[in-house]
């Protein structure tokens, strides 16, 4: 398990510190652009509203707060020694575990953005459940199962989920599924 960023006693893992450095930069960009957005937001002067109640007030304050926190995070991660942090971080994002997460994401996106809406909901759901179980039991599993072991379960669960979810939500809860 290369990616499990374990905390060694007395400090953060080097990879985590580098990751913090990266996110702090992201947050600085985010808060700075939101601050700019709040500052340039319409002050509705033509409606003669009180200047203390402009829509950009609270977003501006929040982005300031995030900016301060992000700078604090950046300073902290720059100061903390982290030998080999970049390499560990690189290993973490290319590890087998990360690939599994990426696969979930891929399947989920194909299901929600592609299948749902294109084919009837029950069919999309059945295909997704079937693919999900097969991928993670037969292909990306640590002790792999054979197709023959997994397939009956996968088919059974796919049919059951598609049928029950469609029935319960459309008939009992009167939700019009996509």
């Amino acid at each position: 398990m290369t990616d499990q960023i374990e905390e060694p006693a007395g400090g953060e893992a080097p990879a985590m510190i580098k990751a913090d450095l990266l996110t702090s930069l992201v947050f600085i960009v985010l808060s700075a652009s939101m601050l700019y957005g709040s500052w340039t937001m319409d002050r509705l002067a033509n409606r003669r509203i009180n200047p203390m109640t402009v829509p950009g007030l609270v977003p501006g304050l929040l982005s300031l707060a995030l900016l301060i926190c992000a700078i604090a995070l950046m300073v902290r991660s720059v100061r903390t020694p982290s030998v080999g942090g970049w390499l560990d971080l690189g290993a973490a994002v290319t590890s087998q575990a990360a690939r599994r997460a990426g696969m979930v994401l891929f399947l989920a996106l194909v299901y929600t953005l592609g299948l749902v809406g294109l084919v009837p909901f029950w069919l999309a759901t059945g295909i997704f459940v079937l693919a999900f179980i097969l991928v993670f039991e037969v292909w990306l599993a640590a002790p792999r199962r054979t197709l023959r072991q997994s397939l009956p379960w996968a088919i059974g669960l796919a049919v059951a989920t598609a049928a029950i979810v469609t029935f319960v939500f459309e008939r009992a809860f009167l939700v019009r599924l996509p």
Binding site: T112, T125, V129, F132, T161, R176
Partner: peptide, 28 residues
């Protein structure tokens, strides 16, 4: 087994976020 459970749970997440206002936007 969590591989099987999580597939079903994701379906519920999709339906659950859709059910209240019935908009695709909420799934996104």
């Amino acid at each position: 087994p969590r591989e099987r459970l999580m597939a079903v749970v994701y379906v519920l997440c999709v339906v659950g976020s859709f059910a209240i206002t019935q908009r695709m936007f909420d799934i996104y």
